[in-house]
Simulated scan of single mutants.
Amino acid sequence: MPPADALPFLTGPFADDLALALKLADAADAVAMGRFDAADLDVSAKPDASFVTEADLDTERAIRALLEAERPDDAVLGEEFGTAGSASRRWVIDPIDGTHNYLRGIPVWATLLALSIDGTPRVGVVSQPAIGRRWWAAEGAGAWTNTPDSGSRRIRVSDVSDLERASISFQSIEQWDEAGHLPALLHLTTRVWRDRGYGDALPYMWLAEGRLEMVAEFGVKEYDIAALAPIVTEAGGRFTAYDGSGSLTAGSSLATNGVLHDAILGILRLADGPTTGASV
Rank of each mutant, 00 (worst) to 15 (best):
P3M: 06
G12E: 11
G12V: 03
D17F: 10
A19I: 03
L20H: 05
A25V: 09
A28M: 10
A30W: 05
A32R: 01
A32G: 14
R35G: 12
A38I: 06
L41S: 11
D48L: 08
F51G: 05
T53N: 09
D56K: 09
R61W: 02
I63K: 00
I63M: 08
A69G: 13
E70D: 13
R71Q: 13
D74A: 15
A75W: 02
S86V: 11
R89A: 15
R89L: 10
W91R: 03
V92P: 03
V92Y: 05
I96D: 04
L103W: 00
I106W: 07
L112W: 00
I117P: 04
I117A: 03
D118I: 07
V125N: 05
S127T: 15
A130T: 07
I131F: 03
G132Y: 14
W136D: 08
A137N: 06
E139N: 13
E139K: 11
T145I: 04
S150Y: 09
R153V: 00
R153A: 09
R154H: 09
V157E: 00
S161F: 04
A166S: 14
A166N: 01
Q175F: 02
W176S: 06
D177M: 10
H187V: 03
R191C: 14
V192T: 13
R194D: 15
R196D: 15
D200E: 10
L202K: 07
A208T: 08
E213C: 07
M214T: 10
V220P: 01
D224S: 06
D224N: 11
V232F: 00
V232T: 14
V232G: 00
G236E: 02
F239K: 04
S247H: 03
S252K: 00
A255C: 06
H261W: 01
L265R: 14
L265S: 14
A271M: 11
T276Q: 14
T276Y: 12
G277D: 14
